[in-house]
């Protein structure tokens, strides 16, 4: 944490200065900073972990079956082994890449498509809104797991297909949120004001609606991130998701479930990984929400101790 000295000088709080850099704001919020570090680690491991792994994630060693986590068996024995004697640590690293390569594209796809459609429908209203909402209702009315089972049974359960299924199933979530935001925003005076100097609809959506709706949509997306990871794990559990010998966190939980009483680490550790990742994403999303709101951003610049005591008045109004 940096000392509070730089905000007591008037220049630091004056509205005339640039808004503080985002990494400085992040540094001031310990929770968000920790979450960012965890997420960064997960992504780094997912990106580069396999380079160092070799075949350790799949190499079997039946003599080392079901070893509990310990320091006695070197780095890869740190988190124990599964029933085939494969290193849980190596499998966690390998699974991180698979899991993220499914969850991230799926969330991004549904976020992009759903938000764009929702903002468009909400801004224009009328027929377009009705059609978009009914399509969302149709998608929502099918149990997404059922569609996934049917589609993945008919087609091959490849990573690509899983991503597509998950993306389509989650589009309505963003579509409805974005539509609600846009429908509320379109009647605001600044949208009218933009129309009085001839701003076309696409520019209004991009410059006036999107920046306001985006923090909400990102928050929904981080929550959805964990939902997608869990759905992927249930698909893997049903045997139509990730196919062994590939491995994902969800699949590890599923495979470890039967050893829960004898070897808790096989299922619990990947579960923990899922939880840690989603909690970090959520904490970071909450921070992003504050940091992207110009009316709220000043709260993050307050020194930690005084944050609770200060009146809810932006500093430039006190000065």
């Amino acid at each position: 944490m940096s000392a509070p000295d730089d905000r007591t000088s008037p220049a630091a709080t004056s509205p005339r200065t640039r808004p503080p850099r985002w990494w400085r704001l992040l540094g001031r919020d310990r929770g968000a900073a920790a979450a960012a570090v965890v997420l960064a680690l997960v992504f780094l491991v997912a990106l580069f972990g396999r380079l160092f792994l070799g075949d350790r994630a799949v190499r079997q060693d039946l003599r080392a079956s079901l070893r509990p986590p310990s320091l006695d068996h070197g780095f890869y024995g740190l988190l124990g082994t599964d029933v085939l004697g494969r290193s849980v640590l190596a499998r966690l690293v390998d699974a991180a890449a698979t899991t993220l390569s499914i969850a991230v594209p799926a969330v991004l796809c549904s976020l992009l498509i759903g938000s764009a459609l929702g903002l468009w429908a909400g801004y224009h209203g009328g027929m377009r809104e009705n059609v978009a909402m009914r399509v969302a209702d149709v998608i929502l009315s099918f149990p997404s797991l059922l569609i996934a089972v049917v589609v993945l049974y008919v087609f091959t359960p490849s990573a690509m297909n899983i991503v597509l299924i998950l993306a389509v199933a989650r589009i309505p979530v963003y579509l409805r949120t974005a539509r609600a935001e846009a429908a509320e925003l379109r009647s605001r005076l600044f949208v009218d004001a933009a129309r009085t100097f001839g701003t076309p609809a696409s520019a209004i959506i991009r410059r006036h609606l999107l920046p306001i709706a985006l923090p909400t949509l990102l928050t929904v997306a981080t929550l959805d991130f964990c939902f997608v990871m869990l759905t992927e794990s249930s698909l893997s559990f049903l045997g139509i998701g990730i196919q062994p010998p590939e491995v994902s966190w969800g699949l590890m939980v599923a495979q470890g479930r039967q050893y829960l009483q004898t070897a808790w680490w096989i299922a619990v550790l990947p579960g923990l990984a899922i939880m840690l990742t989603t909690v970090s994403a959520t904490v970071l999303a909450a921070w992003v929400r504050l940091a992207t709101d110009p009316g709220q951003r000043w709260r993050l610049t307050l020194p930690r101790k005084r944050r609770g005591e200060r009146a809810a008045v932006p500093p430039e109004m006190i000065a």
Partner: peptide, 14 residues
């Protein structure tokens, strides 16, 4: 056109 409520007529996040 110039509106009466200037705060509402300006986008709060831009």
């Amino acid at each position: 056109i110039v509106f009466q409520d200037a705060l509402a007529a300006l986008n709060p996040v831009q």
